[in-house]
Amino acid sequence: MARSPLGKSMKLPKLKGNRKARLTNPRQKVLVLYLANSALDAPVVAWALYDGSGERLHMAGDEDSPPYKTGLDALREGWRLFQASQIQPHVRGEELDLSYLKYEFFFERICEAVV
């Protein structure tokens, strides 16, 4: 297994053949990556992690370096993409206005709950 920059909490469940190991108390971990453009292999510029397993409590400002360099790196580490932001047309007259980060990608992985 490739080394995870986030340590033990990022390890995938062990696989047996093509079947995933059974989890008695499955929980979702969610990774949100904001990329530099709409390509999944673009660099990460911002991120968030939410750990439903209870293993680790992530919060704003807890890391200064992104967990992956690109969205593709997260895929290679076993994260499953389940949502990507749409590329929206620009409203006439507001083409130069800026607000929220544009290129948002949601990933998940299922882990055993930590009691």
Binding site: A46, A48, H58, M59, A60, G61, D97, S99, Y100
Partner: peptide, 28 residues
């Protein structure tokens, strides 16, 4: 802890805590 801030974000028109999802930003 200290104040955490992200240089260069001031010209973006956002709605207060609508950006709460951005836990960490490169360059903060």
């Amino acid at each position: 802890g200290g104040t955490r801030f992200i240089p260069g974000t001031h010209l973006r028109k956002v709605s207060e805590f609508a950006i709460g999802r951005y836990q960490n930003v490169v360059g903060q």
